[in-house]
Nucleic acid binder design. Structure first.
Length: 591
RNA sequence: GGAGGAGUAGCGAAGCUGGUUAUCGCACCGGCCUGUCAAGCCGGGGAUCGCGGGUUCGAACCCCGUCUCUUCCGCCA
């Protein structure tokens, strides 16, 4: 390699190098043989450089050039020269120069590729994952993996400047109940016992606060054994943070500072210092989602005041039930574009979320038309005026219990946002979702359960009378939402053993089980635990959004696929009988 | 666990209501070509049409079953 070792990379040459001798190492990205003259695009991590084998090159060099195929790994020794004005390629960073080759050395050849290595490979994802090393060579993947590394660096830089310590926590931990399904790790030394992989470092970071570390962060790998989606998979990385002696406002400020630093540094975007806050109730009520995409409006309105003025019995019966609600969404100018068939598509979307149907009306010059308009002909002007609808608008209506009504119309809202192109992809709209209820009533089990988890603090004003009506209790809980994705989630924690016990009582969590599962945390709280709270941001999701992608697999070097497999190394996989025996396990085959 | 969509050369796709030598682009092989940058032109090889069964004179196409992938719901404190 001595003589072939690169002196420059493929991304750094410009006119100032003209006349200099250089050696380049990289991969043959494209190969254009014109007979007399021959061009190569040589690619490495840093960029692309055009190499020329001139017509006056000697025969052996021409033969060497001819033998090259795409993705051969080669070394080129040659001279940099400025391109004539008419040959400058402005789409290329190094487009003002080219390297006239003196010698070509093949460092390694390459078989016929399973797919072309391009910015955006069209190969199906499982094939890309099987040959991930090739897929990762593409400039797009190289850029995204670098973005991810830069992101992690910016995070550390920010916290370092704020007196935070990065502290590692174990990945072989105790399985705790609630939440997602744990990944279990059988113990060899302790027959029949198991570790779990952490769903998050939650309990450890709280213990670290009890230990007096004051400000903790960690870029932590987390594991949840649940079905994957575009924005989640079995293992993922979170930016985990916990602080002592803080209120929610302190956590907001710290988090906003972190995102401001990241976006300024990596994208040169100035984020507005204080992110909008929306209550959980309003998010659902107006946008139909606890993670609303605020890049477009389409806010819901209450249609209940108009129901009595019309004859549509479905809505009347919805409102007669205790939790019934009728929501309206005015879609400006969409009447013409939305035929009955296209509205049916919207309805199908709503039905996925439990809606029975989707009612609609179109606003015309004379009033309302189509759908259920005949039931409201008398009050058309009152409705259009009240809803602020104009001629050519489409009014979508959803009647169901409040939650179903909001959620299903929210799904329609999301679809419309995409279909109508209402989303400006260059925008980053953050918002805090606050005032989450602490408890949810489980109708099937007839009991209260924690809406998030059992360690979140109720807001002050509810503490004294928490037991009277648990459903009204709001917690010191918050989510950070960006462009319709839940990006971070956190809370101020309970640090007082008595309060913690009252919460266990409300959700019917047995004292003995609490002792068994996280007795160590409850014990720790008895020894002068400081008030504390924190937040965890999804690093994969953040990288995905910054990269403008729809899937976190585009920013994870070696992701699992949608069914939890890794096509490259083919795991999970069988293991030897002996390994199973050592772990005191037995495989029970399912039917 | 449920609903929709898809499986055709190494890759991406076409093939509508049954009859083709199964088509096209990229890649691959051979040839031509002095300025391309997704180079171009001429030629070539490569497909048991996911698998199994059925209907039919005849199936990539229709029917049944099955497997795999995929999007969504459930799940994800």
């Amino acid at each position: 390699m001595t003589n072939n070792k690169r002196t420059v990379t493929c991304g750094q040459l410009d006119e100032s190098w003209a006349g200099k001798k250089v050696t380049l190492n990289g991969w043959v990205h494209r190969n254009r043989d014109h007979g007399g003259i021959h061009f190569l695009n040589l690619r490495d991590h840093f960029g692309m450089t055009q190499v020329v084998i001139d017509e006056d090159a000697d025969e052996s060099l021409k033969n060497d050039a001819e033998s090259l195929k795409i993705e051969y790994c080669i070394a080129i020794e040659g001279t940099v020269r400025q391109r004539p004005d008419s040959m400058v390629n402005n789409d290329m960073k190094t487009g003002s120069i080219e390297v006239k080759a003196n010698s070509i050395t093949i460092l390694n050849s390459c078989e016929t590729l399973p797919f072309m290595i391009d910015e955006e490979s069209e190969a199906n994802e499982n094939l890309r994952l099987k040959y991930r090393y090739l897929d990762l060579r593409s400039q797009g993947m190289q850029k995204r993996i670098k973005l991810r590394a830069d992101l992690a660096f910016a995070v550390r830089e920010y916290f370092d400047g704020q007196d935070f310590l990065e502290i590692e926590t174990p990945t072989l931990i105790k399985s705790t109940p609630e939440g997602a399904r744990d990944f279990l790790v059988p113990s060899r030394l302790h027959e029949g016992k198991f570790f779990a992989l952490p769903q998050s470092p939650q309990l450890y970071k709280q213990i670290l606060m009890v230990s007096g570390f004051d400000k903790y962060f960690q870029i932590a790998r987390c594991y949840r054994d649940e079905d994957a989606r575009g924005d989640r998979q079995l293992e993922f990385t979170q930016i985990d943070v916990e602080m002592s002696f803080v209120s929610a406002d302190d956590v907001y400020a710290m988090t906003e500072g972190m995102y401001a630093h990241i976006f300024k540094k990596l994208m040169n975007i100035e984020l507005t210092p204080t992110f909008e806050k929306i209550t959980y109730h309003d998010a659902l009520n107006y946008y139909g989602s606890d993670k609303p995409d605020l890049r477009f409006e389409l806010k819901f309105q209450d249609f209940a005041p108009y129901v009595e003025k019309g004859d549509f019995s479905v809505f009347k019966s919805v409102l007669s039930s205790e939790k019934g609600a009728v929501k309206a969404m005015v879609v400006p100018g969409a009447a013409a574009a939305y035929s009955r068939k296209k509205i049916t598509e919207l309805e199908d979307e709503a039905k996925k979320f439990g809606a029975k149907g989707l009612a609609w009306m179109k606003v015309t010059a004379d009033g309302l038309d189509g759908g259920i308009s005949k039931f409201y002909s008398e009050t058309a002007s009152v409705i259009t005026e009240g809803l602020g609808a104009k001629e050519g608008d489409l009014i979508l209506l959803m009647g169901a219990d409040w939650k179903t009504s909001c959620n299903s119309l929210g799904a329609v809202r999301s679809k419309l946002g995409k279909d109508l192109g209402l989303i400006d992809e260059s925008e980053f709209k953050f918002c805090w979702i606050v005032d989450f209820p602490l408890f949810d009533y489980n109708d099937e089990e007839q009991c209260w359960e924690p809406a998030h988890h059992m360690f979140s603090m109720p807001q002050d004003r509810f503490i004294d009378s928490m037991e009277e009506n648990p459903g009204d209790v709001l917690g010191d809980l918050y989510d950070l939402v960006l462009n319709g994705y839940e990006l971070a989630s956190g809370s101020i924690r309970v640090h007082n053993p008595e309060l913690q016990q009252r919460i266990f009582n409300i959700v019917g969590f047995p004292k003995e089980l609490a002792e068994e599962r996280f007795g160590f945390l409850l014990e720790a709280f008895k020894y002068g635990a400081p008030p504390h709270g924190g937040i965890a941001s999804g690093l994969d999701r953040l990288a995905m959004i910054m990269a403008g992608k729809q899937s976190i697999r585009e920013v994870i070097p070696f992701p699992k696929n949608n069914v939890g497999l890794s096509p490259m190394d083919e795991c999970p996989a069988n293991v030897d009988e002996e390994q199973i025996r050592d772990l005191h396990l037995q495989i029970i085959k399912s039917e």
